[in-house]
Design a protein around this nucleic acid. Sequence first.
DNA 1: GCGTATTTGCATGCACTTTGCACACCATCT
DNA 2: AGATGGTGTGCAAAGTGCATGCAAATACGC
Lengths: 158, 158
Amino acid sequence: MIQVDTFDLKMLAALQDDGRLTNQQLADLVGLSASQCSRRRMRLEEEKVIAGYHADLAGEALGFELIAFIHITLATHSPDNAKKFRELVNRVDDIQEAYSLTGDADYLLKVMLRDLKSLSAIVNDVLMPHQSVAHVRSSIVLDRLKESMKLPLRALER
Amino acid sequence: MIQVDTFDLKMLAALQDDGRLTNQQLADLVGLSASQCSRRRMRLEEEKVIAGYHADLAGEALGFELIAFIHITLATHSPDNAKKFRELVNRVDDIQEAYSLTGDADYLLKVMLRDLKSLSAIVNDVLMPHQSVAHVRSSIVLDRLKESMKLPLRALER
DNA sequence: GCGTATTTGCATGCACTTTGCACACCATCT
DNA sequence: AGATGGTGTGCAAAGTGCATGCAAATACGC
């Protein structure tokens, strides 16, 4: 685990909020000079504490109005099935996130789609017929209470 | 839904990948001049197609090694309970994402934590005792197969 | 076709970034 | 104490990127 001091934490928190902050703005926020922020930011990028910067697009504005979570149970727990399923997940780019889980479902997928027809297509035409998949249960998101995309860095402060 | 042409889509895709691209880099990627990219980017920001830019922090590097999904069922479906639960979710900043869902669980939470003890604390000390909550089921993430954070913009082309 | 509106590239002044450099601070060893 | 090396800092200057005005080019309506 990498050495990160209070200045770094402040910078990380600020950049989590606004990934395009200039070094000068950062400097004003954390109380260092711009050059120092530049250097520290480079260090954090190089050490991969900052994995990258991404524009956050408004899905609704672009017509992606439907988010759904899909719980998947595999047919059998053979390595072969797991591998095939992984390939499926990576091939379908409507699948935004995929996790393997403890508990009664094997995998949890998050998909972002334009309409119910697309969800139906994914579930009935792509997932259900796939040989590795035994069981599919999908839930549609009714409301997004919270979607912070931010780590609770406050937990790291001392 | 907002008017977005091919240039915009290319820019959005590029900025999804790297939110700190300069206008000049953007220009080279999409085939416009830098000034034009600047103007278009400003437009996309103003029209909230670009909701923001965020640094993507490496959770593991900072000690957040545990991701879990928590399914919640509310005690009763009163508006009062829903409101109380919302407040709870917003207060606890270990809860990164929260959705209300169709299907057999009412809510799905995503938490990012430092260890199992923290998960236990959230589940047993915060969620379970809360008056609005009837049932809690948590699943730990074993593997992250995919975590793209990117919209499949290709669906919008042509 | 002709006029209007929009989009484009270029040029420019301004702001931001990055680098070298000198200095301050701290720990360690003699 | 004093010397030594490492790290972190601000400042200044040179390089780089950004935003805006402007004129040319393109698209659009009638």
